[in-house]
Nucleic acid binder design. Structure first.
Lengths: 272, 272
DNA sequence: CGCTCCCTTGAAGCTATTCAAGTTGAGTGG
DNA sequence: CCACTCAACTTGAATAGCTTCAAGGGAGCG
């Protein structure tokens, strides 16, 4: 059994069949949520990491004046807060934007993977680093791009990320984002977002519908937005295998692991 | 031998004497740079991670139109790009803002620490996660805070981070940042930054000098900026995170409630 | 002394926000 | 089936916030 998350990671980090089996077991518990449902809330100390398998979610913060700031979109195949357990508490919330299918991974299982599946653990870190890279690009967008290019850039990013996991390949795919959500992402008012989208529509770069946006020609939109996908680090793995990353955790034993994932060569057997 | 970086990490992650020795050896090679010197450049694949021991540096990107976007400040005790080797290439540059003393760590050594010093490796990851948390706060700042509170918030953060490693404790400490650097951080023009700082000076919140800014009363500035340091994750290893204050549900206002439990919709778009 | 780098100030104009008033389309109940 | 409702989208007008252009000032340095 596999899923979008595993397929995405296995294209970036070399993993054995046993690695993939372990990751598959870790993400097998699925939950279904409606739109506008919070998975975790600011100030809490969650016990699970999440993997989005279907639907759109986001990280967000509510400011003192009630306005919302969206910090990240989570699309199918994305993990979120895979390592938040290292930090003391969440400083933002995670909520669904559309109905979502979500896999949960208890942090205890992540610790086990850290101890016995170094390549899986490395893959999870890869995912965290890509998130950080996206965050940097968003900061650039909000700080330095004009509002039309900024919105176009977001749309290019979302489509590119979806296409990287085999979704949204058809040119009439509707991005299920509301204008108010784009506004809270870009730090603009919803009125201004409407006017900018209007202009993009007049330029035939997008089509605006009631339930989302359609990008008929992604390449043209990319050219307009000066979109360079390097920061998504999507290139296929082609180099030497990445460094092993074992973590010796006191509360996970080899026995625990084998009961859960079956007998396999542990990290210690294959590495000094 | 020890340094600011090691002292900072050892307060967050439990490390043995041998761990600290290993980390100390890894950061023992020091280099000295002038101001405005690039440590790494966009597009390169560096062989070293850096630790700032003295001076200010930053991550930045130069846009197509020549403007600069500052993505992070690196102050003494900060590591940078500790795990960039997992990703394929740098998508931003790192440059000094003042003369700097810098320790270099070859990625080869980080691999060794990963294999033999799990707690050290965990500490490095802690540092990466805090960087990401700061990045999120900056995105909130640039997107949703008014320009005066935004600049005040940056100054509070820099001083709080410095004080966390025992620096900038005296009330006449001069933050060595130029107005143009603040502008490139906040995504504002240097002219506007000058006017906003002027206002803050009139309100006696800061003092502006030729070679930097002075914050005579940090607590007052924090109050103005609504600065909450949680996102810096500074609490000591042995300190429990502060328990949330009890909320009187019967008498709580909508605001109280939402501050605590969040809300998954934009308020900005609704009539107050 | 004069040069350069920053900081400062003024004025004009553009961009984005706010307030306010529609419009549209999907869902709901009569 | 049609009226009603509601959320999302649209449009206009007034104004606030920010940028740009332009010019001047002051400290440090060769």
């Amino acid at each position: 059994m596999t899923n979008l998350f595993i397929r995405k990671l296995s294209r970036r980090v070399r993993m054995s069949d046993a690695d993939i089996e372990a990751l598959s077991a870790a993400t097998s518990k699925m939950l279904y949520y409606d739109a506008d449902h919070d998975l975790t809330q600011e100030g809490s100390k969650p016990e699970f990491a999440y993997v989005i398998l279907d639907g759109f979610a986001c990280r967000y913060r509510i400011m003192q004046d009630g306005s919302r700031s969206i910090l990240a979109y989570l699309v199918p195949g994305d993990g979120c807060d895979l390592h938040a357990s290292i930090l003391t508490q969440m400083v933002h919330s995670i909520g669904t934007l559309t109905p979502c299918t979500v896999a949960t991974i208890p942090y205890r299982v992540i610790k086990e993977l850290a101890a016995y599946r170094p390549n899986v653990y490395l893959a999870l870190w890869w995912s965290v680093l890509v998130d950080e890279s996206i965050l940097q690009e968003w900061l650039v967008s909000v700080g330095r791009r004009s509002s039309d290019k900024q919105l176009a850039h977001f749309l290019c990013e979302v489509l590119t990320r979806l296409q990287a996991v085999g979704l949204a390949l058809e040119p009439d795919y509707r991005i299920p984002l509301k204008q108010s959500e784009l506004a809270d992402t870009a730090g603009l008012s919803h009125v201004h977002v409407q006017r900018v989208l209007s202009d993009l529509r007049k330029a035939k770069l997008i089509e605006v519908g009631r339930k989302g946006l359609v990008v008929p020609d992604l390449e043209r939109l990319k050219a307009f937005a000066e979109f360079k996908p390097d920061y998504l680090h999507l290139s296929h793995l082609d180099e030497a295998p990445p460094p092993p990353a074992p973590l010796d955790l006191a509360n996970a034993t080899k026995d625990d692991f084998e009961k859960r994932f079956g007998r396999n060569r542990s990290f210690r057997d294959q590495n000094p």
